[in-house]
Each structure stands twice: as C-alpha cells, then as structure tokens.
Design a protein around this nucleic acid. Structure first.
Lengths: 124, 124
DNA sequence: AGGCATACTTACATATATGTGGGTACTTAC
DNA sequence: GTAAGTACCCACATATATGTAAGTATGCCT
C-alpha cells in the first residue's frame, strides 16, 4: 500500500478501478447521464431508464451516493418524496460518460455497419 | 422497430445500449484503454491489465472485435502470434473511455475524500 | 532433455448481478 | 371506497459473469 498522487486503473487493487466500475456499470452510467441536466425523483429515474427494476435503481443510487457522486434529498414527507442531484464530482464524471454514450448514439448507423451480422441497419 | 438516425441508450432494445455495455464492461474499457496508443499481443494485454484471466481477455477481445472496434491480426505462426489494434471507431471510443478513466485517476484523492469511510487517503 | 512461453479453448465451479413478487403508510384522484 | 402513486426493503430464484485448471503444438533457451 503506497500513497499515490493519482490512481491507476490497470492496478487491480487501486480504488480508481472500482469507481470506474461503478460509473460504467450497467445502470450506473445511465443514472449519471439521466441526472446530467436535471434533478430527478426516484420514480422519474425509473421511467426514464427503460428496463431498470426498482431494486437495481435503488441499489445503484446507493452506490453512487456512497461514492459521493450524487446527492440524495429526502423531504421526509408521506407519501415519500426524495430526489437526486449530481455533486460537482458527479457532474464531471457524468459529462464524460455522456460524451461516450453521445458519440455512440450519433454514430450508431456506422457502428452497426461494422457488425458482421449487418442486416440493413434497423435501429430500435 | 423503427429506423432512427441516431441511437438512444435509454431505450432498452436499442443496440447503442449494448455497445455501451461492451465498451464499459469490467474488462472491455481497460482493453480499449490499453490499446489506445499501441498494438499489443495477447500476452502483453494480459500482463498490462492486472487481474484479468486468459478466459476473460479472450472473450472480451472477441466481443470488441465483433463490434468492429478492434482488429485481430493472426500471423499464422507456431507458437501462435496474434496482435490487436484499434479500428478507427475503436480509437474514437477508446479516447472517450480514456478521458473518463483519466479524470478519475487524476482526481482520486479528492474522490476518496468524498467517501464516508474516508480514512486518510491511502491509494494502492 | 526440461522448462517456459505463446494464444487460445473447454469443462466445471463459484461469485455476482439482476429480476420478481409482496409489503409499507399514506395521499390523491376517480 | 377503490385504485394508483410514492420510495423504498426483503426474501427468493435465476441469469450472467468470472475464475480455475488442464490441454494443444511448437519454438527457444539452458
């Protein structure tokens, strides 16, 4: 265990690798992108991110909150009212995850053409 | 199934989401980053990416090759000699994955300070 | 001759991720 | 009064990801 001034994702034990995994996990990236421009409530996130279950959304939010990337605000009301916002660090990371997904979205037709099973590019 | 001119990662069935998952998978991202500046052989990648097993490296490389992001060159020699290079699309994506991991690496100390279990930041 | 390296593949076992259905305490709309 | 919405948690089941160990044909180094 040494004290580095920067991380190294190639080192298995470096915490930077875990953070990278959290923000690029199946749902983690999508949550960060969804919160990029707006604060959202739990149910709004659920509807925005097609296919996510409540269980995974809750779990993903907790991990990202634990990493200090999102802020959970509980209004203490009943029925429950809670919303989620990016922290400054979360905003930095979100922007970079978005840059990636945005490039992929914009270049999807070209990407699909690279695929061996390339039927005429029908995108859903 | 409609024909979009761009993808939408928020749609579960959109192929862009699968591509995003491939390039942000546990090992996929690291492989792309490793190949960012140089062509590497299988064993070189294995040594570079701490903790990856041969099985997962082989599998990850096949997925990325299937997506048209890396190029596999087999020299047909014995003992085997094969190397891997990014395609143009792979280079675009690699640059963006790297931008993300690079930011995390550079800001690791600050990120660790956001963590609740923040003991004095000892980075491995 | 013996041992290590190369780029994988396969079978088997395990770990981790994810989904499903049900429950909560209460409000608002129909 | 009935149904739906809210933000979750829990137990249980399953799916997917990953690790481990062994095998292959041959060259190179000692």
């Amino acid at each position: 265990m040494r004290n580095f001034s920067r991380g190294d994702v190639f080192a298995a034990a470096c915490p930077s690798r875990q953070i990278l995994q959290h923000v690029t996990s199946r749902w983690g990236g999508l949550v960060l992108i969804a919160l990029r421009e707006e604060t959202l409530r739990f149910a709004q996130l659920r509807r925005r991110i097609d296919g996510i279950s409540e269980r995974m959304l809750a779990q993903t939010l907790q991990v990202l909150e634990g990493d200090g990337l999102i802020l959970r605000k509980d209004y203490g009301e009943v029925p429950p009212r809670v919303d989620y916002t990016l922290t400054p660090a979360g905003r930095e990371i979100s922007a970079r995850v978005f840059a990636l997904s945005d490039w992929i979205e914009k270049n999807l037709p070209e990407l699909l053409a690279l695929t061996p099973d390339a039927a005429p590019q029908t995108v859903q």
